[in-house]
């Protein structure tokens, strides 16, 4: 699996297909989070911005190999493992991007609540920021996986569906991503940092289910 992820990562980095989603994330964070803003608000916003970016990365990684190269890799490693490696590469990239983004947000924001009066406890803040990255990257990867080959076969609807599902994942009650984003933003009113573990369990479950379906279908639809 290490060799596969290394191959897929090299493919992603050298192809420069990572550039548009990374630029989107940079623009979203730059527009929404400013120096001196309340830290929890900005973390919530930046984490929410990560979700569609993670979905985009998952779509890129799932289909970045030309068909014949995919067949070569699938024969060598098994199609399910090859597909899983692509999705792990995407989610790993999204997590790295989210950690960098949230670190930047923490560094430039005001570590106080929305009214700039109550000081935010740093340690829970960092833990909550990391949790939010993991949750949004996982849900985003799941969304991207659902909206591309092998789960979705018609590329015409892929982009529309990804955008729609990513939006729904951020705003729908019950979504793990909404839970962590909402937790950060509402925590900002009082300055109390919510450390939510349950959404992480849910997000990992959703991502695992989507990845599992993709891995099973990768050989059936090859």
């Amino acid at each position: 699996m290490t060799a596969l992820v290394r191959y897929q990562s090299a493919l992603l980095l050298r192809s420069q297909r990572w550039l548009p989603p990374v630029l989107l994330y940079a623009v979203l964070v730059a527009v929404g989070a400013r120096a001196g803003d309340p830290v929890l608000d900005s973390l919530g916003y930046a984490s929410a911005a990560l979700l569609p970016v993670a979905a985009w990365l998952a779509r890129i990684c799932a289909t970045q190999e030309p068909p014949a190269a995919r067949q070569v890799t699938a024969a060598a490693a098994g199609p399910a493992r090859a597909q899983l490696a692509a999705l792990l590469t995407a989610s790993g990239g999204a997590v790295a991007l989210g950690v960098a983004g949230n670190a930047l947000v923490v560094a430039m924001s005001d570590w106080r609540n929305t009214s700039h009066q109550v000081r935010v406890d740093p340690l829970p803040m960092v833990v909550a920021a990391l949790l939010a990255v993991l949750v949004c990257a996982s849900v985003g990867t799941a969304v991207g996986t659902l909206c591309t080959w092998p789960l979705l076969r018609s590329p015409g609807w892929s982009v529309t569906l990804t955008a729609l599902l990513a939006l729904l994942a951020v705003v729908t009650v019950g979504s793990p991503a909404r839970a962590v984003v909402w937790g950060l933003v509402s925590g900002s009113r009082t300055g109390a940092v919510p450390v939510l573990v349950l959404p992480l369990v849910g997000a990992l479950g959703v991502a695992a289910a989507a990845a599992g379906a993709a891995c099973v279908l990768s050989s059936r639809r090859a």
Binding site: Q71, A75, G78, P79
Partner: peptide
């Protein structure tokens, strides 16, 4: 051939 190679199930 793809079935034999395990690419397709």
């Amino acid at each position: 051939l793809r079935l034999l190679a395990g690419i397709g199930a």
